[in-house]
């Protein structure tokens, strides 16, 4: 089949980007979207041009590396499918696909379709865990956890951190991502002791990053390849509200969003060395 790919090309954050159209005459409908880009890149390299940079790794829809907008929809037209598993048979012969990166202030541009999602790591670092050090654990069956609870936790824990929720949200809000982790840990007995603090810490970091606010409209859950429900956002709101009400002192801290990649001067002496 024949397709026109109109792809956002941008050399780096400093330079202006623009769309470039590529016509592909021989797209196999069984290919995945990323394999289609592979084929395009091979021809670009052979022509001496720079290939399109895009993020990808497992290509099984679980690592969360890949993702971009296709015709204005995060991860393309198939529900619950990442671009690495999106096969080309979902497009019509002759169609034009507009491909552009996630756009959000909190996800600074890196190159072409690659963006910087370290904000998500910082949100997790600010409380998205059970504070249990290795070796402290009681037997796995000490806490009995009903199947329903466990399943609900799993539904929320299925998040792959791809960023589609932020990309699809008109406000570029990270509420679904943050809510998913707060829900996963908040409903399990292991996570209860830190429930309030976790919500305050993670919400504080989310708000320190330049994400927008949630307006409860649900675009995120529609775009989510793991179909994380909107319910997780209300769980976040509830835990945050309760946590804020009960708090006695300001014991959460946030880190300043880091957007630089450079480690400074080349080959500078490593400040971490012990010697």
């Amino acid at each position: 089949m024949k397709l026109t790919l109109k792809i956002w090309r941008q050399k780096n954050r400093g330079e202006k980007g623009n769309f470039v159209s590529y016509t592909m005459n021989d797209v196999n409908p069984e290919m995945s979207m990323l394999e289609c880009l592979d084929v395009l890149n091979e021809t670009l390299i052979e022509k001496g041009e720079e290939p399109v940079a895009f993020e990808h790794d497992c290509r099984e829809g679980i690592c969360g590396s890949c993702g971009f907008m296709i015709n204005g929809v995060a991860h393309g037209p198939e529900r619950a499918t990442t671009v690495c598993q999106l096969t080309m048979r979902h497009f019509k012969d002759g169609e034009e696909l507009v491909i552009e990166p996630w756009r959000a202030a909190a996800f600074p541009q890196i190159k072409d379709l690659v963006v910087d999602r370290r904000a998500f790591d910082r949100i997790i670092a600010s409380g998205g865990y059970v504070s249990v050090s290795t070796g402290n654990a009681p037997d796995g069956n000490t806490h009995l956890i009903g199947k329903d609870t466990s399943d609900r936790a799993m539904d929320a824990a299925a998040c792959i951190g791809c960023g589609a929720c932020v990309a699809a949200c008109p406000n570029a809000s990270a509420a679904l991502f943050t809510g998913a982790k707060i829900t996963h840990l908040g409903i399990l007995p292991q996570g209860k002791p830190e429930q309030d603090r976790r919500a305050r810490g993670m919400v504080a970091q989310m708000n320190t990053e330049p994400f927008g606010s949630c307006t409860n409209i649900g675009e995120c859950t529609g775009a989510c390849p793991k179909e994380i429900p909107l319910e997780v956002i209300s769980a976040m709101n509830r835990d945050y509200l309760v946590g804020s009400w009960k708090k006695r002192d300001d014991d959460v801290r946030v880190v300043r969003p880091m957007t630089e990649w450079s480690t400074g001067s080349k080959l500078k002496i490593d400040p971490n060395a012990t010697s």
């Binding site: 290795t134 796995g140 199947k147």
Partner: peptide, 20 residues
């Protein structure tokens, strides 16, 4: 010990209705 550690971290392993 791995299972115990992971359960303590909140890994949602599959469970029976009774919670085990």
């Amino acid at each position: 010990s791995i299972i115990d550690q992971c359960v303590a971290q909140g890994v949602p392993f599959a469970r029976e209705y009774g919670g085990a």
